[in-house]
């Protein structure tokens, strides 16, 4: 294992842990298993010696996300996914007096996000919450950059139009 390698991984975990767990939860549908998948992926990366030549890895952040994603996909193959995964990683505000509107809006937004296919929900987590670039997301999802960008724009537009319909009705 290359010295400093685990240090970098620790930094990535510290900075992206919420998004990593959210991405895994989105795939698996169980938060506990998702956290186990994140841990397992990092344990593999920390202990592996095959990535001594980190020069081969263009983007370690994308590499970590991809590893966690693969780990989560492995778990998801064994355990069937549950519904309502979004509520397992989004912290919804309580409907207090002054926060009532915001909470209702968030509930509406989550309901719309839940209707999206898994890949689009994942795209939202990676782009909006993890703040990754389209190139990084393309590497994680093994999809061309342009496809990712188009898919993202369409997803956001779709969400916006659905949200407008809800509030216009």
């Amino acid at each position: 294992m290359q010295p400093g390698h685990s240090t970098r991984l620790a930094e990535i975990y510290r900075d992206y842990r919420l998004s990593l767990v959210a991405m895994a939860t989105n795939i698996i549908g169980c938060r506990h298993r998702a956290e186990d998948a994140v841990h397992d992926a990092f344990a593999r990366m920390v202990q592996t010696r095959t990535i001594q030549s980190t020069a081969e890895i263009v983007d370690l952040v994308a590499y970590c996300f991809r590893s966690v994603r693969n780990s989560a996909l492995n778990v998801a193959q064994k355990h069937s996914s549950q519904q309502g995964a979004l509520r397992l990683y989004y912290e919804v505000q309580q409907s207090a007096n002054d926060a009532g509107v915001a909470a209702a809006f968030q509930e509406e937004l989550i309901a719309l996000l839940e209707q999206l296919p898994l890949e689009q929900r994942e795209l939202i987590v990676l782009k909006v919450h993890a703040n990754l670039t389209f190139a990084q997301i393309g590497e994680i999802q093994n999809t061309p950059l342009k496809t990712v960008a188009t898919r993202y724009r369409r997803t956001i537009e779709e969400l916006r139009s659905k949200l407008e319909k809800v509030y216009d009705a």
Binding site: R17, L18, S19, V21, A22, R31, E35, V38, H39, L88, Y89, Y90, E91, V92, A102, F105, Q106, L109, I110, L113, I124, V128, H129, I156, L159, R160, L163
Partner: peptide
């Protein structure tokens, strides 16, 4: 729209995982 989605806070990781 992005900022609206961003306003949805992600749940913190559990102490067990950390």
């Amino acid at each position: 729209m992005e900022s609206s989605i961003k306003s949805l806070a992600l749940l913190p990781t559990t102490a067990d995982l950390d």
